[in-house]
Structure formats: C-alpha cells, structure tokens
C-alpha cells in the first residue's frame, strides 16, 4: 500500500483535529474561561477559519480536481467535528429539556404542575437574559418603548421562517 499526497493530507487533517480535541481534554476543559459559550465557540470558529484558509491555499497552489475534493472533504470533516462538539457542549451545559429530564431522573415521578412550578423560575431568569443577548447581538433594538428587528435580525428570521415552512412546523419555542 502506498501513501500519496491525498492520503497524507487526510492524515494531517485528522491529526490536527485530534490535537485540537486532545488539547481541550488534557488542558483547556479545566480552565474556567473554557466554561463560557463565547470562548468555546471561538475555540472552534477560529480553528475552522484557519483550517479552511490552509485548505483553500493548498487548493490554490495545486489546482486540480483531486486537491479540491480533498480540501472540501477536510473542511466538511472539521464542520462535522465542530458542530457535534458544540451541540453536545451546549446541551450538557444547560438545555431546558435536559434539565427537566434530569430533575425527573432524581425524583422518579412528579406531577405536571410541580414540574411547571419548579422550572417557572428558571424560565423567568432566562427571559431577561435572552432579551439582553438578542439586543447585544444586534438582532433586535429598542425604539422608544417598542422592540423591533434590526436588518440582521430580519435576515436571520427569514432563514428561520424558511426552515419552519420547509419542515411544516407550526409550534416552536
């Protein structure tokens, strides 16, 4: 079996992703800074940007179909790794539904009213935080006493609406 430049590219790409993951496991996950959503997001986002730039650069100096296919494959691989990681991280951190399931896991059986009462307070705290986060992300803005979408918010909402109508979903939130 011989290893050509394409196989080497895949080995280098996989090694990079392994080092990225092991660095988190061995050192970074114990740092308080890496408990914040923003830092963990940028840890993956910056890595994906650099990885994509290097892949495109290699495509540029080796402009053939095989190099392009390999580069796109590797960029997709980073995407799969990062989305899986970030989704698991955020679900484990504080998903509302997972919190409800965990509460039931420790109490065995609970009435619907009791559960609603327990999680009512969490919802109230989230309510305030969400509005601030949306405003800080420049997705909504306050004009006089009314909240309205910004241009960026309107673009994102169009994407959301398209996804909902595609999947025929009528109840969200």
């Amino acid at each position: 079996m011989t290893f050509g430049p394409i196989s080497i590219a895949y080995v280098v790409g996989l090694s990079y992703l392994s080092v990225h993951f092991l660095l988190y496991v061995a050192i970074l996950r114990d740092r308080p800074l890496f408990q914040t959503e923003k830092v963990i997001f940028f840890y993956h986002f910056i890595s994906a940007l650099v990885f994509t730039a290097v892949a495109l650069f290699i495509c540029g100096i080796l402009p053939d179909a095989l190099a392009t296919a390999t580069a796109l494959g590797l960029v997709a691989l980073h995407g799969i790794y990062s989305i899986s990681f970030l989704e698991l991280w955020s679900l484990a951190q504080g998903s509302y539904s997972i919190s409800i399931l965990t509460e039931l896991g420790s109490k065995s059986i609970l009435s619907r009213e009791k559960l609603i009462e327990t999680f009512f307070q969490i919802g109230n705290t989230k309510k305030h935080n969400r509005t601030i986060a949306l405003s800080e992300s420049v997705l909504i803005r306050r004009v006089d006493d009314r909240w309205q979408l910004t241009h960026r918010g309107r673009l994102l909402t169009r994407l959301f609406t398209a996804l909902l109508s595609l999947s025929d979903i009528r109840r969200i939130g």
Partner: peptide, 22 residues
C-alpha cells in the same frame, strides 16, 4: 431546524417579524 424549533429566542424573532413588541 432543531435550534429553531426549541429556541425561545427564535420564537421572539419570528414574532417580531410580524409586529413590533413592547
């Protein structure tokens, strides 16, 4: 699409696309 279904923020944004809110 799972983000849009379950996100409270997405719900707010979609409602704001119909009308401004106090």
């Amino acid at each position: 699409f799972t983000l849009v279904i379950s996100s409270i923020s997405a719900n707010v944004l979609i409602n704001l696309s119909f009308h401004d809110m106090t």
